[in-house]
Amino acid sequence: MQVSPSGQQKIGKRKEKWTLDLSMRRGEQRNDLPSPPGYLTEKLPAAEVAAANEGSHLDLVDKRSWDIALAPIKGLPMNIFIMYMAGNTISIFPIMMVGMMFFRPIQALMGIRATTRMLERSKQYILQTLVYFLGNCLALGLAVYKCNSMGLLPTYTSDWLAFADPVQSMEHVGGGFTL
């Protein structure tokens, strides 16, 4: 490690600045400087940490995990309110909102693996995952309901009319005035 006024040729007329070069040059010997105070080069054993945080620390993790797990359900009332305000007319903003409503739970469900990893250390890991999953499903259901009330779901016979096959006639007729 050297502090040198190098690079003078490269920069040319530029003002000379100091540089810190952490690489070692060939043939240079490693200087064994002592570590700063409080810095340990060896890892502490995990058991010791767990032992140190026993009790209050575990509660904190649980609480945090529940926060994550309940977030989708907590968002539902807000969503319902937004939906109500958006109305059932089909225009750009309600459509965008419905889109967001679909997008967010689907995104959350896609990334459920990452979320479960966050919940891993909680004691009620399975319950929390289930609650998180259900919450997102509820949000999705809400979006579907909104679509339905906006009339975007093909639930009526008229929506399938265009796909109906023509009716085959069993008899054929011909004729007219006597020739």
Partner: peptide, 11 residues
């Protein structure tokens, strides 16, 4: 194969 019917209108 057809079920053919012919009508005849005599005016």
């Amino acid at each position: 194969q057809l079920n053919l019917y012919l009508y005849d209108i005599n005016s």
